[in-house]
Design a protein around this nucleic acid. Structure first.
Lengths: 180, 180
DNA sequence: ACCCTACGTGTCATTTTTGACATGTCAATC
DNA sequence: GATTGACATGTCAAAAATGACACGTAGGGT
């Protein structure tokens, strides 16, 4: 149950609306690499956090839009979550990686086809992330965009690792095909 | 809902028991990097797969242990899942990465402390994976251990990416601290 | 003026996952 | 011979996530 912490983290850098939070977690780098969630989980969770006093309502905007900000209690909760508990066994769901592992059940030619597709995909994604990264200057830890900067940088590196792994796997499969 | 596919994938390389499957998904490389699950989800899911005829029961062993094997139908299901649907927006939950992103809410010194802890952790994990990897020879795609080999190789690379990202982040934070 | 799209927030039933509890077996150590 | 720990499989209530549905608004283009 890390969704509340993801929301607190996003709100810790700057106040946002439920819509913006949902978008980041559904399509943005944070959703892609760390914790994906749809708006149907976000809105109820925001109300729970509001009830616990970990976030505060900052009034209405244009279309019933409500902006939330983290409270001191919320910040304390987040900090203790980060500092206190150890780097133990954590929740993990990574569908793309699962699919890559499963590739060994296909015959080598098909597996290679899929791996090439994966490479194209991470290349496109990495290019987009690089563009995003270029927009943040060297604003890293505080500043309203430090969060996105860290995420984009991680994304580029994670994609690169996948890319190189896929190339390695293609090589292995090719080798296996020619030496039966 | 990729758990059934994870199980089919594991069973595609060699028959296993629910206990072995649970262990791999709870503590092994597949669980760590691709899809974590406890035995409480695995056993019911196995019975569902059995009901659908995607896996078959291969009789009992020592302590009521039951070994399952993938069926032809199961293999077809798995292959079409891998080949047919596109590399679209997928499920993603990665608690360690989420925590790293959130680090920007701590003050730089605390963030650096946590990052060093992360580095130690991935180093230890990578060392273990390298040991595991060494045990599989160059048996890659078929063979009973191709699966684990792919997973271990990916794990080493993913850990390496995290390691380098953490080093980069420490550098950024240090820079920020000295230039206020 | 009209239409379309993105904005914006929500509910609710169904499906999935988690965590606590339950139960028994085999092998090795003391 | 007793105890301990890993092996082995399950149930069930509670919590969380998903997907379908629902409703209204502001702005841009034609």
């Amino acid at each position: 149950m890390s969704l509340p912490h993801a929301l607190l983290g996003l709100l810790a850098t700057e106040p946002r609306s439920g819509y913006e939070l949902s978008k980041e977690l559904a399509e943005g780098p944070v959703g892609r690499f760390a914790w994906k969630a749809g708006h149907t989980s976000v809105y109820p969770e925001l109300n729970r956090l509001l009830g616990k006093g970990l976030i505060a309502d900052r009034g209405e905007g244009p279309r019933g839009r409500r902006t939330y900000a983290i409270t001191d209690a919320g910040r304390r909760e987040l900090q203790s979550w980060l500092m206190d508990d150890p780097v133990g066994p954590s929740k993990m769901r990574n569908e793309p990686v699962l699919r890559m592992f499963l590739l060994s059940v296909l015959d080598p030619d098909d597996a290679i086809t899929v791996l090439r597709r994966v490479i194209d995909h991470v290349d496109a994604e990495a290019a987009e992330l690089r563009r995003a990264r270029a927009q943040y200057g060297d604003t890293v830890p505080p500043g309203p965009e430090g969060f996105g900067h860290l995420a984009a940088e991680y994304g580029v590196r994670a994609d690169q690792a996948v890319r190189e792994w896929a190339l390695w796997a293609i090589d292995q499969l090719g080798r296996h095909r020619s030496t039966p």
